[in-house]
Simulated scan of single mutants.
Amino acid sequence: MSYLPIIQKTIEKIEMSLHEELSLKNIASFAGFSKYHFHRIFQKEVGVTVSEYVRYRRITNAAALLMYTDEKILDIAFTYRFESQEAFTRAFKKVYQLPPGQYRRIMSNITLQREERNMSQEQKIKGWLLSGSHPFHYEIGIDYGVVHKGKGSGYLKSVTVESPNEFGTLMQEFKADQYKNKRLKLSGFIKTKGLSGFCGLWMRVDSAMQDVLEFDNMSDRPITTDTEWNHYSIVLDVPENSAVISFGILLNGHGQVWIDELKFEEVDKSVPTTNPSAAHDLLDEPTNLSFEESLNESSNNE
């Protein structure tokens, strides 16, 4: 059983309720599970407990308010359900290694310098490249204001898109050597705005001859509407003859997508692959070779 849909539904609820009281019991009840069972499946899928997730999302949003608003630190602390400014400061320092006031002063100056620099030159991202059908119609960069965790997220947005069939991708490639004969899971958090088409994670496994061995671009579960941060994943097998693994985020048409906290991990065979072509069951033997039986007749006979 895949718990990802209910995890995504729950994260959507959490993201909308960060200003409100969020207990494990209430969240688990919303998901339809006991709090102990939901604690286990949430941590297995997302990598942190529910309480840890809520806490770092509140702190991340608080950091954005510190950088981009003049709100008082005490008001920000109360907005995100901290009982006092002292409690907020302790929690904030664990994540950013700075007290909130000092973080505001330092990061505000750094952000201003970045904005001035990025106005005059295209922003590059270490390890990442822009590709797609019309890459020059899209832009990539690092966003320090829209963040899921930490200090920045990657983004891909349309700039001069002319056709709904155009797409861009923020992507990477790496050698498959250490992952051969393993099942590999790519997961991360995505936020979208202004979509006219669709977007989604993608991953591809190629041979040395550039044959596509495994592929998934979330075509059977695309993101087509504006969404707050949520968790998505792809699971593919890496065959023995694999040479290159490519992955990234794809944006079709207009809009903007942010991506953060990407993670690769090896999973066992109990985790189903998301390769769409692997979902089709093979027949035990050839059937209906003379075309005498229609699909409706076959269904009625079952």
Rank of each mutant, 00 (worst) to 15 (best):
T227F: 13
T227A: 14
T227D: 14
E228M: 15
E228R: 15
E228G: 15
E228P: 13
N230W: 05
N230Y: 08
H231A: 05
Y232N: 07
Y232H: 14
Y232R: 11
S233T: 05
I234Q: 04
I234N: 03
I234Y: 03
V235M: 01
V235Y: 02
V235D: 02
L236Y: 02
L236N: 01
L236M: 03
L236K: 03
D237W: 00
D237L: 02
D237A: 03
D237F: 02
V238P: 00
V238S: 00
V238Q: 00
P239W: 00
P239K: 01
P239C: 00
P239I: 01
E240C: 01
N241V: 01
N241P: 01
V244L: 00
V244M: 00
S246D: 02
S246A: 08
G248T: 01
G248S: 02
G248Y: 01
G248H: 03
I249N: 04
I249P: 04
L250H: 10
L251S: 02
N252P: 05
N252A: 13
G253H: 06
G253A: 07
H254I: 11
G255Y: 05
G255W: 04
V257Q: 08
V257A: 11
W258E: 07
W258N: 07
I259R: 07
I259N: 09
D260E: 14
D260P: 13
E261Y: 11
L262Q: 13
L262F: 14
L262A: 11
K263Y: 13
K263T: 11
K263G: 10
K263P: 08
F264V: 06
E265L: 13
E266G: 07
E266V: 15
V267N: 09
D268P: 05
K269V: 12
K269N: 15
S270A: 09
S270W: 04
V271W: 01
V271C: 03
V271G: 03
P272H: 06
P272L: 07
T273M: 09
T273D: 07
T274R: 05
N275T: 03
S277I: 07
S277W: 06
S277P: 01
A278C: 07
A278W: 05
A278V: 04
A279V: 06
A279F: 12
H280D: 08
H280Y: 14
H280G: 07
L282D: 12
L283C: 08
D284C: 09
D284H: 12
E285H: 13
E285T: 12
P286D: 09
T287V: 14
T287Q: 13
